[in-house]
Structure formats: C-alpha cells, structure tokens
Design a binder for these strands. Structure first.
Lengths: 147, 147
DNA sequence: ATTGATATTGACATTCATTATCATTTAGAA
DNA sequence: TTCTAAATGATAATGAATGTCAATATCAAT
C-alpha cells in the first residue's frame, strides 16, 4: 500500500506537521500489523526494533492515522480502545463473542443505507458510525448447547 | 413503574441478594433520572438526599440493574460509560453530534432485523447490540453552513 | 425478638488506559 | 548553517472503574 504512505505524508504536509523517523516507524508497524490491536500492543511490537520509541508518540501517531482515515478507533473491549486499518473501500462492522472474545467482521450494504436514511430523518448529517453485535460465536454456542 | 421495582426485587431474590436501603435509594434515583447519566452523576445526585452512600455501591448497583435488564450501559462518550433506562419495549439506538454532544435516539425495525439476519449468517447468536451514528445535528450543521 | 451465617457497605487504595508536562531534540524552510 | 516551531519520550498526572476489608445490615431459622 504505497497509497497509504502517500495519504499519511500528504496529511502531515497539509497540516504543517513533520515527517519524523518515529512517525514512519509507527506508520509501518501499523500497516503491517494484524487486524485489531491496541496502542499498547503496537508499542510493544515497535520496541523490538525501535527501542527508543515512546508510548506517548504511539498514541499521538495513532490519532493522526485516525485523522487521515487510515485507522479507526473501536471500543470492542470494555476497557481499551483497539485500532484497525481502515479504508473507504472495505468498511465493516463487528460482532464480538461475549464468551471467548472472538471478533468477526461483517458488512451489510442494507444496514449502511438504512443508517444513512434514519440519520437524515432526524436532521442529522451522518459522518461515521459504530455497530457492534454482542452474542455467542458458533463454537461457544455449541459448547453451551452440549452442556 | 411499579413494574421495574418488582423486576429489581425479583432479581435480587432470585440470586439470593439482599434488598438494602442503599439499593433502593439507587434504584429510585435511577428510575427518576433523566435519560442518560454516568455513575458519577447518579452518585452526586444521590448524595444530596443520602449523604452516606458510596460510589462503589452505585457502580455495583448499576451493574445489577444492567443484569436484570432495567439499565443499559452505553459508550456514547469516549471516556465514560453512560447508563440509561432500558426496557424490552422501547429499545433504541443513538446518534451523537460530534460538535455539541447532543444525543438523539432512534429506532429502526429494519435495522434490527438486518442485524439479526447478518449475525446468523455468520453462525453468531446475537444477544445484544450497540449502534452509534456520529455526525452533526441539525443546529450544528446549520451553524457550520452559515460560516 | 434473637441469633448467626452471609451478603453488603463505604472509605480508601489500587489499577490501568490515556493524556499532560516539559526540557531536550529534530525537521525543514530560509 | 541557522533558526523556529514542532516533536519526542521520560515521567507525572488524570480519572474512571474496581479491589480490599473491617464494620454493618439483612433475613431465614430458631
């Protein structure tokens, strides 16, 4: 995704921000990361190669990534924000298993459209949304049924 | 709502929990409260009439109220859980204005049904959900447009 | 009403994610 | 190179939420 790099650099330039070694490292680690991770996790991952990086900077840079639409902050867990890569092309929502914490992604054009419609009915201009379905995943449901 | 009181008392009895003065006070304050409030807000409200009540007990009792379906915990704000009265009869979701924080409630049978359907498609047994639309309310949108 | 086992309470301490502070360093335009 | 504003990271601070625990209250059984 050279594209993401260009978006990030463009965002920095546009706002008069500087392109630093740390921001590049955090950007790269984030882009290469798995789907969902917390600031703390990203921080630990970074420390392996870049010992000198600070947790504050990770938080700050994640905020920047959210600002330019490359990352999205989610409340999947109750006591921690998780971040995920985001692009307008692959928007999705989440369902979370209350037993094992498993996270499943889903997309429904119909739901997206309905949200748009419902917001406008209230005079609201929708810009973003979060949808989370809490329940039991297939495995946990089976395990419960067997018992 | 004598009904709510009965649900609460029934829940306590069912689980071998005791009906205490504090729980009753918190229950009443919550039932009489406005739509959305945090544990802290409920606590402050309670202190006026019941100086001896502890914040821990407010948190604990709110959890009980959630357990028996009388309350619902929401993440409307980024750094605080808010609670609202809930009953199966008037389920709804929320839209939040990112400018003024205004909260609007909405309900869409179609969205509810779709969520059910989408969850099942993934082998998920849906039990609950949270939907939040972030955007601009009518007033803030106008204010922005004028500028 | 008394008792006694057990749940409950509240003051306080603690945890833990996130944010602020601030002296030092760095980027990048001139 | 120089200069200025932004950035950094160690550390402290914040603040919501939870754990601790001795003292207290509830309530079923007597």
């Amino acid at each position: 995704m050279e594209n993401a790099a260009r978006i990030f650099e463009g965002h920095l330039k546009l706002r008069g921000l500087k392109s630093t070694r740390q921001r590049q490292a955090i950007f790269n680690a984030f882009i290469e990361s798995s789907v969902h991770l917390s600031a703390e996790e990203l921080y630990r991952k970074l420390r392996k190669k870049n010992p000198g990086i600070g947790l504050s900077t990770v938080y700050r840079t994640l905020k920047l990534l959210c600002d330019c639409g490359l990352a999205r902050a989610l409340q999947l867990d109750d006591n921690m924000v998780t971040f995920e890569k985001e692009s307008k092309r692959d928007h999705h929502d989440h369902m979370v298993c209350r037993e094992c914490g498993r996270i499943e992604e889903f997309y429904s054009k119909a739901i997206e459209d309905l949200q748009e419609r419902v917001a406008k009915k209230h005079g609201f201009i929708p810009e973003d949304h979060r949808m989370k379905i809490i329940g039991l995943c297939k495995e946990c449901a089976r395990r419960k049924a067997e018992k």
